[in-house]
């Protein structure tokens, strides 16, 4: 009797640990068999490319989740960064370096403001970042009076914009490196992998990451152990802001224009990826590796469904369903909380 329950516990432990990875493998197998053209390098490239941007944003979400916070403004930071980079190059006629630096600075400043609102003004995190989201959605449209930015566009004053997207900037989103197969690995994927590894190292192996987990678990106790809680919480929002702006830069480089309508799904997709990450390897906490896998999961799912000709409107439904299943994995099966 006791042995039976013991092995049952073991099975449950294995299910919690490897359940989601198994599900991912099953998904890949299913699409490979049923969607012709899914298991090809071309489709892999496409998946990687879409995963890169949501993945980078999701890593930022992970940073705020670690300190038990939440950042709703990442989607709008990304689109602001998209518009800002386009504006700087097309309207202000600056080069790629200026555009990238300006975007990163913008992300850091927005993160700083979020952090200060939450830590010092005591605005609840969801509300502070919701407010910031609306603010940015409005702000990014003011300079062009609501129009998208493209090369040769007509400016509000009547004259024509003469700036162009620089080639090196576009390469960030479009260049693909040869890797066994010609034009296989997009530049943006390399950026994503590098960031993912850095964030993973930061949270798993450095004292800064450890302290941030401590804050998320018991802020008061962390403070009494001498942790400068306010500083680290603000840093978490700044990481989130900077990563969101990186996502926006890559999106701008891929699109080659400042399209005000793009990036609508960024927030939900990246939050889903970060939350799915809780279930990977039974971590039951926000973690960089899980988040990357979560982003890959969402990317594969969407690409597979597209290739099976599922209508676009079913995609959100399926994404939501996957998220709910992942959350059940995390919270119910592992008895967390």
């Amino acid at each position: 009797m006791k042995q039976a329950s013991l092995s049952k516990d073991k099975i449950k432990a294995v299910a919690i640990r490897y359940g989601f990875l198994t599900l991912l493998a099953g998904l890949v197998l299913f699409f490979s068999l049923s969607a012709p053209g899914f298991a090809t390098p071309f489709s892999a490239v496409f998946i990687f490319q879409s995963v890169a941007i949501t993945g980078i944003l999701a890593l930022g979400v992970t940073a705020t989740l670690v300190v038990d916070g939440f950042d709703l403004s990442i989607g709008s930071i990304a689109t602001s960064s998209l518009m800002l980079s386009a504006y700087i190059m097309v309207v202000l006629e600056q080069n790629a370096v200026v555009a990238v630096i300006a975007c990163l600075a913008m992300g850091a400043i927005v993160g700083l403001v979020n952090g200060v609102l939450i830590v010092y003004m005591r605005v609840p995190d969801l509300l502070a970042t919701l407010g910031m989201m609306f603010l940015l959605i409005g702000l990014q449209r003011i300079p062009t009076e609501g129009r998208s930015i493209a090369q040769g566009m007509t400016l509000p004053g009547g004259e024509t914009a003469t700036g162009v997207f620089s080639k090196s900037f576009l390469a960030l989103g479009r260049h693909k490196f040869d890797f066994f197969i010609e034009n296989f690995i997009p530049f943006s994927v390399i950026i994503f992998v590098v960031i993912a590894v850095l964030i993973w190292l930061y949270f798993e192996f450095t004292r800064y990451g450890r302290v941030m987990y401590a804050i998320g678990s018991n802020e008061r106790a962390a403070g009494l152990a001498g942790v400068p809680v306010h500083k680290y919480k603000i840093i978490a929002y700044m990481i989130s802001g900077v990563l969101a702006s990186v996502g926006g830069i890559l999106l701008a480089a891929r699109l080659g224009r400042g399209d005000i309508a793009s990036g609508n799904n960024l927030l939900l997709d990246s939050v889903a990826a970060a939350l799915i990450g809780f279930a990977v390897l039974g971590a039951a906490k926000p973690n960089a590796f899980g988040t990357a896998i979560g982003a890959l999961f969402v990317g594969i799912l969407l690409q597979g469904m597209t290739m099976m000709n599922a209508p676009y409107y079913t995609q959100d439904f399926v994404k939501g369903a996957v998220l709910v299943v992942a959350l059940v994995f995390t919270f119910s099966l592992s008895n967390r909380r």
């Binding site: 190292l201 192996f205 450095t206 004292r207 800064y208 450890r210 302290v211 987990y213 401590a214 998320g216 678990s217 018991n218 008061r220 106790a221 962390a222 009494l224 152990a225 001498g226 942790v227 906490k285």
Partner: peptide
Amino acid sequence: GTNGIIPEFNISHNISLPFLSTLSKFGFI
């Protein structure tokens, strides 16, 4: 319960929390 333990940490992480800097090199624990 309120002022001391970090509930999601194990024993060794709970002990080391205030003195991580002395345990770390270049930030790595």
